[in-house]
Amino acid sequence: MIVFDKVTKHYGSHKALDDVSFSIRPREFVILVGPSGAGKTTLIKLLLCEEKPTFGRITIDDKDIHLLKDRYIPYYRRQIGVVFQDFKLLPNQTVAENVAFAMEVSGKPDNEITKEVMKILELVGLKDKASNFPRELSGGEIQRVAIARALVFQPKFLIADEPTGNLDPVTAWDITKLLLKINSLGTTVLLATHNREIVDNINKRVINMDKGRVVRDRRRGKYDYK
């Protein structure tokens, strides 16, 4: 259970988040929508401990994540899968190495990593591209590598920050379907997006944000912006 409790974040005099409260239950699929500057990215940064909230607290299973000491943050991050709009793959490492890196970091043995990486690449449909470099792949393929990397720890919680922002509509749908599949396998998913078509068609919980505030939070939501 992830709980945002009256979270406010200031950047100087600018309020990026203003008294935001909501909670996400295990296995839920939650879509975060809102125009640029609504506070989606700030919210995700807070969840990843990249930033600390100015007021309020964020708890995961009743633990306040911002009370973590700096040196424990890496271990905390390994429990959360993240997918970014700009993919954030290591350009000098192959697909398999990119996925393996997240596991290597945690000190897992090589044979276990190889097995796990192949399994996860199969899940996202990239088994035959394992030894390609990111620059040799299409946008959709790159995003699937990023999703594979996010999943390799079998996290209970996956955050996707505008994963379809740089993709064409067809590929965007592929990625969304992949996220739904991952959710159906038991992972909680938080999807931040601009994509009206996707939001309106998958019938999931939607949290609408605007100017740093939560303006609507509905079980079967719509995009609701012009």
Binding site: L48, E50, R71, P74, Y75, Y76, R77, R78, V82, K88, L89, L90, P91, N92, F101, A102, V105, S106, R149
Partner: peptide, 16 residues
């Protein structure tokens, strides 16, 4: 530097 940022985000420790 981007590489370093990515490593951090997938949970690598500073010394790693």
């Amino acid at each position: 530097r981007e590489e370093i940022e990515i490593m951090k985000l997938v949970g690598a420790t500073d010394w790693y």
